[in-house]
């Protein structure tokens, strides 16, 4: 196993786990509310997949940190400034189309990252990625098909999907921005250099969006500050009040 600074490894694992935790919670907000029964169940399945991946990522993060914190502790007892998810996944659900657009943009990145992580020099990380990648292959196929179906659907659905893309596209860039943590992971062979994944992502996403008759907005501006914890959007704090209220109201409560 490659030598790497354990604090940076902990940071990296929190980023992976917080992405799946926050998106998993967001998607679970649809439970019982989706437009049709079939989509409701499919979204709940996706949410559960993501929460399951969170348990693995944050479980390993807790071990690496070595302070006795469990995955549950990390998920339920940290406050907003300690979260390391990208801003994209904390954005509100909006309408069903906006949720599916957010899902597709994340899934396409997630698949590329997990595919590379399955070859990680760290065996534990490679094992988690190998398990997760099968779930995410399905996620991206489903969300991509839905983006095509709605984008190339009625004038109403097309208009809503274009609006969702315009809103969410500026959050894509953050998923590929690298910092010292990413550089250290890439150097140790633990994780891929994110910048090298961008071209394949653009081809994949561009192809689906073209088929969906949607236009990627102009402009290079990208929101950032989520994965570094510098500045989350206002939405994450609101989400955590829902997600964490039980542990805050009844500390240590168990099933």
């Amino acid at each position: 196993m490659a030598q790497v600074d354990q604090a940076q490894l902990f940071e990296f694992l929190c980023r992976m786990g917080d992405n799946t935790l926050v998106l998993g919670h967001r998607v679970s907000e649809w439970c019982g509310l989706a437009p049709v029964l079939e989509e409701d169940i499919a979204l709940a399945n996706t949410a559960l997949d993501l929460i399951g991946q969170t348990q693995m990522w944050l479980g390993l993060a807790g071990e690496v940190e070595g302070k006795g914190r469990s995955a549950d502790d990390l998920a339920m007892l940290r406050d907003v400034w300690d979260f390391r998810n990208v801003l994209l996944v904390e954005q509100p659900n909006g309408d069903f189309g906006q949720t599916m657009m957010r899902q597709f943009l994340f899934d396409a990145w997630h698949l590329a990252v997990l595919t590379a992580l399955a070859e990680s020099s760290n065996d534990r990380i490679a094992a988690i990625a190998a398990k997760a990648v099968k779930e995410v292959q399905y996620h991206v196929e489903r969300s991509g098909d839905t983006v095509i179906g709605l984008g190339d659907g009625t004038s109403e659905s097309h208009q809503r999907m274009q609006k969702a893309l315009n809103l969410l596209w500026p959050y894509v860039g953050e998923m590929f921005v690298t910092d010292a943590v990413d550089d250290a992971m890439a150097k140790a062979g633990i994780a891929p250099d994110l910048a090298t994944l961008r071209a394949a992502f653009d081809t994949h996403v561009g192809g689906i969006l073209t088929e969906a008759t949607l236009t990627i907005p102009d402009g290079k501006f990208t929101h950032k500050g989520g994965k570094t914890g510098f500045q989350h959007s206002e939405h994450l704090g609101h989400m955590l009040t829902q997600m964490q209220w039980l542990q805050r109201a009844y500390p240590g409560a168990t099933w």
Binding site: V36, L37, E38, I41, A42, N45, Y138, E141, R142, D145, G149
Partner: peptide, 20 residues
Amino acid sequence: SLHAPDEEMAIKNARDVYTR
């Protein structure tokens, strides 16, 4: 049974509804 717009989505929905 279930509802779906086309056969591909019907298989996907079947996967999600009936093979969980």
